[in-house]
Design a protein around this nucleic acid. Structure first.
Lengths: 221, 221
DNA sequence: ACCTGAACACCGTTCAAGT
DNA sequence: ACCTGAACACCGTTCAAGT
């Protein structure tokens, strides 16, 4: 990092690294350089240390990614379930969930595909949500499905947000008239209203899901 | 593959490879061995060929993955938009979309994070969906947001389906009573009804989204 | 306990040489 | 045009040696 002179082998008098320092550095590099910046070797280089030194503090790359996930997940708001009606709380929760990951776009693709090792904080979050759903009248055996469905949408929306905004651009061609028209119309509407296509799709989707869930709960299913 | 004797260098009398053969083989290996089986070297080995030989037919790994995506996407049903009301068609489309990827679980994580190079078939699909939505009364500038929202959910649900069914298992602990209870209740309900947790969450989610969209369209919004 | 240094077993990709 | 063979520039990870 700032060290200049070559360090001799052997244990340093005071530790150079810690799990926390490694995770913070990895997340920062991820933000600065994208997915490529989060390798064991890159993190080590940034810390002015040999790659093998990291293994004294993290179990390996998978553990590193899991640690980053926890760092980000800590930003998710679960208090809302104690303060708001279940449907409003669900939206508040989803919004903060999305915001937490949207603050670190390059992490999304990385975290999305790394299976999560269940940690206690995540379980506490699920507990809060389940409690609110059951209290609101959802059958206990269906509560998790509701949560998983919303998380699926959040994950997909986060991946979408991390992608190129012009991803769908059909380009100049005349065999997809309606599609081209809709693409141009969306562009105009977004330019006038502000915000990006991913934000708009997220808002439509989360509102639709929660509205649909509300209707299902009322109708008895 | 079946060849035994070492081939001499130089162009073979009849080509050993083709783009199609390479893509088919890669998809098969992906299914058989998981994400690890789709490397350039693995595909080459399976075809009894040197890795560098593949570059005569595909541009590289990214092109390979893009080709696999197209192979799978061809299974998505878009005819339903000409035959059914928009909301029913949306569900039919989503179901076939999901089924296409669910048939190849290991591909999902791979495809989810590889940015898609817009090909013409995908654009044709979007065109069909936009046409149906606009015909049903959706504002042209909002049609794409509806599609993107549903695709986000599909992508997330597909990732979820590819994950470990017991992923959320809180294990034995007494500080998340409601969560543990819901987990056990879900397990019992699924054992009785059949199907996996991912299927249940998908069904709840897609039905809720489309119900919410239907309500939004009717209410004018 | 916690670092260096050297090694191992992998990747994807390039390119000259051969037919 | 389409393959082999050798190389290059990467990965994550292990482990003995040093303090």
């Amino acid at each position: 990092m700032e060290e200049q002179g070559r360090r001799r082998a052997g244990r340093p008098r005071t530790p150079l690294l810690s799990r926390e320092l490694i995770l913070d550095t990895a997340l920062r590099l991820l933000d600065e350089r994208g997915e490529a910046g989060a390798g064991m070797r890159e993190v080590a280089r940034e810390l002015g240390v040999r790659p093998s030194a990291l293994y004294n503090h993290v179990a390996g790359r998978e553990d590193l990614i899991g640690g980053i996930r926890e760092l980000i997940s800590d930003r998710i708001d679960v208090d809302c379930f104690e303060e708001l009606p279940w449907d409003e709380a669900l939206i508040r929760w989803a919004d903060s969930y999305r915001a937490a990951f949207a603050a670190h776009p390059p992490t999304i693709a990385l975290l999305a595909t790394t299976p999560l090792t269940p940690d206690s904080r995540t379980s506490l979050m699920y507990d809060a949500v389940v409690r609110a759903l059951v209290r609101a009248g959802w059958p206990e055996e269906r509560a998790l499905a509701v949560i998983v469905a919303i998380e699926a949408f959040l994950l997909g929306a986060a991946l979408d947000a991390a992608a190129d905004p012009d991803m769908l651009d059909p380009g100049p061609r005349d065999d997809v008239r309606e599609f081209s028209g809709a693409f141009a119309a969306r562009k105009r509407a977004l330019a006038a209203a502000g915000g990006g296509p991913a934000d708009e799709a997220y808002r439509i989707g989360i509102d639709a899901i929660v509205a649909g869930l509300r209707a299902e709960l009322i109708s008895g299913r």
